[in-house]
């Protein structure tokens, strides 16, 4: 079973994502901001990360930059899932090492599709 870490400060989004991802047979872990996620990853590296952008303490982009520098931080797939939906933001995220990008609002089909795009399903 692949593990996916859902990083989002909204409990509602985490809950929706957990439901869809559990249905897809992922083992789901949660973190509510970038720094909590980074702590989690330095102990236990997930197979994939679903990452919000705007979060208190450490935002998604800062997290991604730090995450990719971790010893095993190159291989997990990182999929942004955020309301930052400007073309320039998307480009910045992809340049920083994101594998895919979901613009909120999203639905189950989009989430599935994007995880498929990066080879997780």
């Amino acid at each position: 079973m692949k593990q996916i870490l859902v990083v989002d400060d909204s409990p509602v989004v985490r809950k929706i994502a957990r439901r869809i991802l559990t249905d897809m047979e992922f083992d789901v872990a949660e973190a509510e901001d970038g720094s909590e996620a980074l702590r989690y990853c330095s102990e236990k590296m997930p197979d994939a990360i679903l990452l919000d952008w705007d979060m208190p303490i450490m935002d998604g982009l800062e997290f991604l930059q730090a995450f990719r520098k971790l010893p095993d931080g190159k291989s997990p797939k990182v999929v942004f899932c955020t309301a930052q939906n400007h073309q320039n933001s998307i480009m910045r995220a992809m340049t920083a090492g994101a594998d895919e990008y979901i613009m909120k609002p999203f639905d189950e089909m989009i989430l599935r599709d994007k995880l498929e795009q990066v080879g997780l399903v």
Binding site: V13, A83, N85, H86, Q87, N88, F106
Partner: peptide, 12 residues
């Protein structure tokens, strides 16, 4: 991109 920031529909 040259386009201005589109109005965002957020579900956060």
């Amino acid at each position: 991109a040259q386009s201005p920031l589109g109005s965002r529909i957020a579900t956060r």
